[in-house]
Amino acid sequence: MTVRVQREDFDVGRELAALRGADPRVGAVAAFIGTVRDVNDDANVKKLTLEHYPGMTEKALAGIVADATARWDIFDAIVIHRVGELAPADQIVLVGVTSAHRGDAFAACEFIMDYLKTRAPFWKKESTPEGIRWVDARASDEDAAARWNETPGENA
């Protein structure tokens, strides 16, 4: 299991090749790549600045990956999340999961992403023609994460 928080871009092909290596048990690799859009909440986004809470971020991501490993039959997983200044079309996040079959790989990948969106301490600040603003959290992200939730009350 690999978790990285970094300023630099990442090479998806290289990361996924390293993730599955030469493991002959792997029959499925699911990956999600999040990228910067140029429009959010009706404003043109020129630049995005991502900050995090060093120390807690790595711990939270490792915990999410561990949860996924406990819930699905997966062999390995990687999460890379960028911080610092990003521009529209830049890559922000990569989640990759290997498994024997696609069902576990798809589900674990989506779970990791849903939990990352609502539990990992990252914050986006947008530069728009109207000024700089912190991005608001979306209720739809909480709803997406709650789908996986078997223990009500944890979202407090």
Binding site: H81, I92, M113, L116, T118, A120, F122, D136
Partner: peptide, 10 residues
């Protein structure tokens, strides 16, 4: 002890 606004990563 850290105070965190709602997170917006990903």
């Amino acid at each position: 002890v850290a105070l965190l606004p709602p997170v917006t990563g990903g």
